Amino acid sequence: MKIALSSQGINLDSPIDPRFGRAAYFLFIDSQSENIEVVDNNLNVNAAHGAGIQTAQTVINKGASVVITGNVGPKAYGVLQKSGVDVITGATGTCRESFRHYKEGRLKSAQGPTSVPHSG
């Protein structure tokens, strides 16, 4: 299974990015091998609009089954849910800590979006 974490940096010791659509990077971790692929989300960080939907599509295209982030808006949440991606929000601390908490079963799936859409 592949897990996507919104990240402010390029390694597991980077802080979780509290923004989904405008996260600086995504770390895609294979839950078995723990191999990591880093994806720069720069195109969506500065997008005038649609960042959440575009980022959700990237996560889906990379084959993630789970996304761990701070917050996610309603449009991105809808796209992820429709594609069967488990969305976990409220993550804080480092990516390493969040990944460990996920493996330990300490993180729960979101029941809906946690932020409002941005205008523009």
Rank of each mutant, 00 (worst) to 15 (best):
G73L: 04
N11P: 04
S33L: 07
G93L: 11
F26L: 10
S33H: 06
I68L: 12
V59G: 00
D13E: 14
V72L: 05
A56S: 14
A23N: 02
H101S: 14
T55G: 11
I88G: 06
V66G: 01
Q57E: 13
M1E: 06
A56H: 03
I53D: 06
R96F: 08
F20R: 11
A23F: 04
F99P: 01
F26Y: 13
T89Y: 08
G84N: 07
K2R: 15
F99S: 00
T55N: 13
I29S: 08
I60K: 04
I60P: 06
V39L: 13
N44P: 00
N11M: 04
A47S: 15
V39K: 13
R96Y: 08
H49T: 11
I3K: 03
L12G: 01
N46T: 13
G21W: 04
I53E: 13
I3F: 03
G21V: 05
G21S: 04
D17F: 09
P113Q: 11
S119T: 11
N71M: 10
N35E: 14
F26H: 10
C95F: 04
G84W: 05
R106G: 01
L107E: 06
S109K: 15
Q111F: 03
A56Q: 01
N11G: 12
D30R: 01
V116P: 02
R96A: 15
A24E: 11
N11V: 02
G50H: 07
G112S: 11
D13W: 02
V38G: 04
R100G: 09
F99H: 12
A4V: 10
H118T: 11
S31Q: 12
Q111P: 00
N71R: 11
P113N: 07
V45H: 03
N44E: 11
Q57W: 02
G73C: 09
A56N: 04
S7H: 09
S14I: 06
S83F: 01
Y25P: 05
D13L: 11
V116I: 12
R96N: 12
A48S: 10
S115K: 13
S31P: 02
K62I: 02
S109R: 15
A4P: 06
Q111I: 12
N11S: 14
I68A: 01
V66S: 00
